Computed example of a mutant assay.
Amino acid sequence: MGTAISLDLADDLPAPELDGLAGDAFAWLREVDARFSTYRADSEVCRLDRGELPLSAAGADLRNVLARCAELWKVTDGFFDAYATGRLDPSGYVKGWAVQVASDRLLAAGAANHCLNAGGDVRVRGRSHTGRPWRIGVRHPWDAMSTCLVLTGTDLAVATSGVYERGHHVLDPRRGVPARGLRSVTVVGPDLGLADAYATAAAAMGPAGVGWLDGLPGHQHAVVTDDARLLHSTALPLAG
């Protein structure tokens, strides 16, 4: 996925069982990387984009992901666009979706307390090793060693789209140029795939994305603007 992934399992289970749970989670994420990567020439995404793989012959996961991307294109008025770069790239949904699936599988397997973090896309469930709700730091967009805020909860999906590592890489699909105005967009909700896509869409909208996020039901947000203003939902689950 082109990013570091960490897993914290907080259940009091035998070490071999914890190892198995972690192994299954990372195996799934490696599988997603192999099938959905836009950098690996043999991935399903690249083969489909080049016309070598008919959609009818693609795997069920890829077909479902593309269907969700089409729905998200409508919901975001075209600002979430898997073809914004001119080629197929569903990464703005896939990373969050993959982590959400991994978390769902961990929960179903008995790991009710865990934190899975894929480069800032975080899914937490239950409680940490301390017995307290998880604390999720949102990176300060100008200082890699600091946070701009800390969230807390027992069942949260937190996705952040920012320009501090890859520059202004999120495109405004209407103009075909890098979007500007928002340095960091964090969306909190019940599903990490949706939170990831909504964060990407809001970043693509630029300053107008703040108003759009304000009207997004069932989600909270925090935004840092290019001129260093921090704006966030009143219901954002901030740590005390």
Rank of each mutant, 00 (worst) to 15 (best):
L231W: 13
G86W: 13
L62K: 06
D227Q: 14
P190L: 00
P217H: 12
W73H: 15
Q220F: 04
A15E: 14
S128H: 06
V124Q: 01
R183T: 10
L62W: 13
V32Y: 09
T234W: 02
P217I: 01
P178I: 09
R183S: 14
S56F: 08
Y93E: 08
F36A: 06
D81Y: 04
G176H: 11
L230F: 14
E52N: 13
I5C: 13
V122F: 05
P178T: 05
P14D: 13
P237K: 07
D8T: 05
A70C: 10
D24M: 02
P237H: 05
L9R: 12
M205C: 00
T130N: 10
H221C: 01
C69G: 06
G78F: 06
D49K: 01
G20D: 15
C148Q: 07
L72N: 01
A157Y: 06
T186R: 08
V223A: 06
C115F: 02
G181Y: 01
A25S: 11
T186E: 06
L21K: 10
V188T: 03
F36Q: 01
W28R: 15
A201H: 11
A102S: 07
H114E: 11
R123M: 08
A195I: 02
L171W: 07
R183W: 08
V224M: 11
G78Y: 07
P178A: 09
D42V: 07
A27C: 02
R105F: 00
W142G: 12
F79L: 07
R166F: 09
A84E: 14
D121F: 05
A195R: 06
E71G: 07
D12P: 03
W73F: 15
D143P: 01
A144P: 07
W97Q: 11
D191M: 06
G78L: 03
M205E: 05
G162P: 06
N113Y: 04
E17H: 10
L48H: 12
P190C: 02
A109Y: 09
A204V: 05
Y198I: 01
A199K: 00
R105I: 03
P207H: 15
T200M: 02
A84R: 11
M1R: 00
T152P: 00
R125L: 12
G120K: 05
A109K: 12
T225C: 13
A84C: 03
V65I: 10
L72H: 04
A235N: 00
S233F: 11
A111W: 11
D81S: 08
Y93K: 07
L151N: 05
V150N: 15
N64L: 15
L231N: 05
G131M: 07
D104T: 02
